[in-house]
Design a protein around this nucleic acid. Structure first.
Length: 634
RNA sequence: GCCGGUUUAGCUCAGGGGCAGAGCAACCGCCUUGUAAGCGGUAGGUCGUCCGUUCGAUUCGGACAGCCGGCACCA
């Protein structure tokens, strides 16, 4: 005799156990049609779920936030169903929901082609139209293993076999197709109307590169057509702000075959770089760092002492001369320790902070390269803080605050914080790890930010905070980092004289704010879609003359702007003003100033902003005052 | 590194076993121009590289490389 309490507080009594679908039906036929699932006492269940006793029940329709996940999950099943109908020999594996969609991994004798995707999508539509009811069954584990073995689905059988023996397995069937799944699912395939297969890609079975490669099909699915259209539109827009495309269009940088994973910075791109570098140099200076510079190549013997030879050799470039082997540095830290080691250090000097814009090279796997976001040669705003264990917390707190200020100045407010904790294979005492992990977490708590823990993801020498930003299409890239290192200073013999006149090994904090300059610039380009704020813009102002008569006046204006420190140029070409404006608009210049006879006679400039607003004529002084105010606002 | 796709003019892209194409950009003229494309002309290429099939390959096949999308990796 269950009493069902609904979200509006009303209670419905039933004489015997009822299914979610029956509850929905009792409320209204429309709701029954729209029902996708339900939340029963907080737990998400199918519409076929039977409620045996008193419960709080909320019917889920496409209007609820949970609906998307259900739809995407069921769409993954629909995809697998379609693939099995078209290619019966294909084996199914897993098909989870991901951001904006879903995927399903298959094993098949040949790769799926883009043409296959089209026919699979057609088949999915067809199965959707059949409106097959989706039914849940429960089976003991061993029976389920045997069931899938019989079907020849060895991957499924393997997955189930790894589930604890006692547990019952739920299976979902639609038509003649059945899959292992925790559920819940939509009640019938007809509920799935808005989906699109996006791409096919390889993926390792169980995410391990030692295993065979499966075929992963990615799809997107939505409750409403308009939502999907908006999503596809967003992807299109994101493509337009891709830093690789804008890098070419705005003539910022290029990459070419002879130097895979290495950027060539063009004049405008290098101006942008320098704005960032000079800003970060000021950050060093104003926050107690001494800027230093270590050599590019160091004897291999040094890298053997630091552990790089054993742990990092695969990712390093080597060179040799006169029977000596060198490694091109992949990190700046050993160099900073060598600088620290020159001279006897006192505890009074700690924390001692070094910063460098050092150029590092890492031999990244070819498949990992990705524009400026993942390169083989890069420059970091790489700082190392030598301190005592007691100083770690304060340094971390200060660093996180500093990083946030820097990100804000560059226009980023959405930062993702993670703390990577001790891995199984590690050095150092548990007490030291406790202290370091606590300090990292506490620094984030004091900064008032939410963070997640990546258990076991820390470096072998210490835990770290990872600070990440998102690129134009939501891909997350780590930029900043703060790592606690208890070992490398000792390996290279760093020590300081403590208060009690004993020699002690300092702790070293590895930290970067923008991380790789290349990656950060890539993210900046996408963040601003190439329309940089005034202080970053490679070219801030262009002066345009209407006809040859004002050429000299225009050149004079440009020179006065240059003399005041603005990045200005003049476009004196014999072209129509609208033509010039179009060109410089496409180059996303913050300001264009037009000078014709009127302005020349009045000694003024007519100012046009990047948004296309005409500010009218004003004196050069009024204009530069505006520029100055805007640049300072940063 | 692995799976798939892709590579044609400076850029964006079409084409296709038999003389290599367009738009934009460039260059040369004309036009002296008022807030997002004035008009006409010229030039531009070992069709990523190498090997094969063929009378003939930019086109078909193979290998390699770069790039793109994922996977793995990211000290």
């Amino acid at each position: 005799m269950p009493d069902i309490r609904l979200p509006d507080g009303s209670v419905k009594s039933f004489p015997q156990p009822v299914s979610v679908a029956q509850i929905a039906q009792s409320i209204g036929a429309g709701l029954a049609r729209a029902a996708l699932a339900a939340r029963v006492n907080g737990k998400l269940v199918d519409t076929g779920h039977r409620v045996e006793s008193d419960a709080e029940v909320q019917i889920i329709t496409e209007r609820d936030p949970e609906a998307l996940e259900l739809i995407r999950h069921s769409s993954a099943h629909l995809l697998a169903h379609a693939v099995k109908e078209l290619y019966p020999e294909a084996q199914v594996t897993i098909g989870p929901v991901i951001e904006n969609g879903f995927y399903y991994d298959f094993s098949y004798k040949r790769p799926f082609t883009p043409e296959d995707l089209a026919s699979i999508e057609q088949k999915m539509l067809e199965i959707s139209k059949r409106d097959l009811p989706v039914e849940r069954k429960v089976m003991p584990r061993d029976e389920a293993v045997a069931f899938f073995r019989n079907l020849g689905e060895k991957y499924k059988a393997e997955i189930i076999a790894s589930i604890p023996e006692k547990e019952a397995i739920s299976l979902y069937g639609q038509g003649n197709w059945i899959d292992l799944c925790r559920g819940p699912h939509v009640p019938s395939t007809g509920k799935l109307k808005v989906f699109k297969l996006m791409r096919v890609a390889g993926a390792y079975w169980r995410g391990d590169s030692k295993n065979e490669m499966l075929q992963r099909i990615y799809g997107t699915a939505w409750a409403k057509k308009e939502d999907q259209d908006a999503y596809l539109k967003m992807l299109e827009e994101a493509e337009k702000r891709d830093h690789r495309r804008l890098g070419t269009q705005l003539d910022l940088f290029h990459m070419q075959e002879e130097a895979p994973g290495l950027a060539f910075w063009h004049p405008k791109g290098w101006v942008l770089w320098q704005q960032v570098e000079q800003y970060m140099r000021r950050v060093y200076r104003e926050n107690g760092y001494h800027e230093v510079r270590g050599p590019q190549i160091l004897d291999v013997g040094l890298w053997k002492r630091t552990g790089h030879w054993d742990n990092f050799r695969e990712s390093m470039f080597f060179t040799s001369s006169e029977n000596r082997d060198y490694a091109v540095k992949p990190m700046n830290c050993p160099g900073h320790i060598l600088i620290f080691n020159k001279g006897v250090r006192s505890y009074r000097e700690l924390p001692l902070r070094y910063g460098e814009f050092g150029s590092c090279h890492r031999n990244e796997p070819s498949g990992a390269l990705h524009g400026l976001m993942r390169v083989r040669g890069f420059v970091q705003d790489d700082g190392h803080i030598f301190c005592t264990e007691e100083q770690i917390l304060a340094e971390c707190v200060a660093f996180t605050a500093l990083l946030q200020k820097v990100y804000r100045d560059f226009g980023f407010t959405e930062v993702i914080y993670k703390v990577a904790t001790r891995p199984a294979k590690r050095i150092g005492s548990d007490a030291a790890w406790d202290k370091a992990e606590f300090a990292l977490q506490q620094s984030l708590q004091q900064s008032g930010v939410a963070f997640s823990i990546s258990p076991g993801e820390g470096a072998f020498y210490g835990p770290k905070i990872e600070y990440s930003l998102k690129d134009g299409i939501g891909r997350v890239w780590q930029c900043g980092t703060m790592q606690v290192d208890f070992s490398m200073p000792g390996l290279l013999g760093a020590e300081y004289v403590a208060e009690d006149n004993t020699r002690r090994t300092p702790v070293m904090l590895h930290r970067a704010i923008v991380g790789s300059m290349e990656r950060f610039l890539g993210i900046l380009i996408e963040h601003y879609a190439g329309a940089f704020p005034l202080w970053l813009a490679p070219q801030q102002v262009v002066v345009l003359n209407i006809t040859e008569r004002q050429a000299e006046y225009a050149a004079g204006i440009k020179n006065r702007l240059l003399n005041q420190g603005f990045r200005a140029s003049a476009d004196l070409r014999n072209e129509k003003i609208s033509y010039k404006i179009r060109e410089h608009s496409l180059q996303k210049l913050p300001y264009q100033v037009v000078v014709g006879d009127k302005e020349m006679q009045a000694g003024t400039v007519a100012v046009r902003t990047r948004s296309g607003e005409d500010l009218g004529a004003m004196s050069l002084e009024a204009f530069t005052a505006r520029l100055q105010a805007e640049a300072k606002a940063q």
